[in-house]
């Protein structure tokens, strides 16, 4: 089946859950910035969670499918498609995701999944190095994507129990664990309200507000980082590293957003605000297990719907 992209949207890229195993040669994880949303959108249409879908940013694309197909949207709430539930689109009908009403990144899963060549084990687009997805670039008007055939029978209507969703908000409090240089920033990270800058992208969410003063000036060597790492450059404005961030960073690491709360950061729009709250590593791990259990229950429940 073809997916005709009649309008590409602001920044629409093909993403799965990213490439693992290549950080030692400097290749970032990439993949959906809000991995939870893509996983759930995929489950809603009967796909494996790692199936490639479209990450739509702030203004979504306009698509026409050449066959009847089942689609689902997770993450940001776009006009044009119900959120967190599957819906059938008829061949030739225009699916128009206009501006996002809430959140920043919507994940459109298509039953069967988008078919793109795997690069280093993943279909994810890595814009900075221009590989993966559709020739390493964002979609453009007139692109034609191909989706795999989907033959499974679909029974009835369903949607996700909202209790399993992350507490998406335009002013979330995000949980962090301490970073290597946490002591050099005292409690300032936990007292401030930070505002999301328009310079944010798939590599990092940049924050403004009262700059963080570093109490220390030891020369730091570069060190490994991961999505969620809060780096503080000399200007004191923290950057939360996201999916496309480089694998090694040279700035002090004040804290790390816990994995379970990364979707909250992924959905921040320019102008939104964020606060931070410190938790223990054990709490972060408990939260990760609880989230996984919730997704597991959803997976089991939905498995019965697809025969």
């Amino acid at each position: 089946m073809d997916v005709n992209v009649t309008r590409a949207g602001m920044l629409t890229t093909v993403q799965d859950l990213g490439r693992r195993g290549f950080r030692a040669i400097g290749v970032p994880l990439s993949g959906a910035v809000d991995a939870f949303a893509l996983r759930v959108a995929n489950l809603l249409v009967g796909n494996a969670e790692n199936t490639a879908g479209l990450e739509c940013t702030l203004v979504g694309p306009e698509l026409i499918f050449t066959r009847d197909t089942l689609v689902a949207l997770g993450g940001a709430d776009f006009a044009g498609l119900p959120l967190w539930q599957p819906s059938v689109w008829r061949a030739g009908e225009t699916l128009r995701l206009d501006a996002a009403r809430r959140g920043c990144r919507g994940y459109l899963a298509v039953a069967g999944g988008l078919s793109v060549p795997g690069v280093l084990g993943s279909g994810s687009t890595f814009l900075r190095a221009q590989f993966g997805g559709t020739q390493g670039r964002a979609l453009k008007d007139g692109d034609v994507l191909s989706a795999r055939e989907f033959a499974r029978h679909v029974a009835g209507h369903w949607h996700v129990d909202e209790r399993i969703l992350p507490a998406y908000s335009a002013a979330p409090t995000v949980r962090v664990v301490a970073g290597a240089q946490a002591a050099e920033y005292g409690g300032a990270l936990f007292e401030g309200v930070f505002k999301v800058s328009a310079q944010s992208d798939r590599m990092g969410v940049r924050l403004g507000g009262a700059p963080l003063a570093r109490n220390g000036n030891a020369e730091l060597g570069s060190a490994t980082v991961l999505p969620g790492t809060i780096q503080v450059p000399p200007d004191g404005n923290p950057i939360i590293l996201m999916a496309d961030a480089q694998t090694i960073g040279g700035y002090p690491q004040a804290a790390h957003v816990i994995g379970v709360d990364l979707p909250l950061v992924a959905q921040l729009r320019p102008g939104d605000t964020v606060c931070f709250r410190e938790v223990s590593l054990a709490e972060a791990h408990d939260a990760a297990r609880a989230r996984e259990r919730a997704i597991g229950m959803l997976r089991e429940g939905l498995a019965q719907k697809f025969s």
Binding site: R23, A24, S222, A223, T224, G259, H285, E292
Partner: peptide, 15 residues
Amino acid sequence: VVPAFASVTVYYDPA
């Protein structure tokens, strides 16, 4: 597993 500078970073799946 990522060797970098004077250390080795080991990534795991917390879930």
